[in-house]
């Protein structure tokens, strides 16, 4: 695999945080969260890696979303 840029590593880091957060969700709905995170990242998988502005915006949005969904009150997610 080619050497990853700092921004690409940031994306992977966020994805890792998301997967770790998924583990804290209730057993029966965990898969929904996992699928949701996967889809959200896959949506932009074709993004040009030079499009820094957009990627940074998506990263910020992703972090905020993670923060919101991490709340214990959120027990399930509908897609």
């Amino acid at each position: 695999m080619a050497k990853l840029s700092g921004l690409q590593r940031d994306v992977l880091k966020l994805y890792r945080q998301c997967i770790r957060a998924v583990r804290l969700k209730p057993d029966d709905t965990r898969e929904n969260f996992r699928a949701f995170a996967r889809e959200e990242f896959r949506k932009n998988v074709a993004m040009d890696k030079k499009d820094f502005g957009t990627i940074e915006y998506l990263l910020r949005r992703g972090r905020r979303q993670l923060e919101i969904y991490q709340d214990e009150g959120i027990r399930n997610i509908a897609r």
């Binding site: 590593r9 992977l12 880091k13 994805y15 583990r23 996967r38 990242f41």
Partner: peptide
């Protein structure tokens, strides 16, 4: 791809109940 690799490494982490720091996971 790199996203799948992250998923695999996270699954390994869960399987062996350890925490792999980002640098090693990369």
């Amino acid at each position: 791809d790199s996203l799948d690799t992250v998923e695999v490494v996270m699954a390994i982490e869960e399987e062996f109940s350890i925490e792999i720091p980002d640098k090693e996971a990369d």
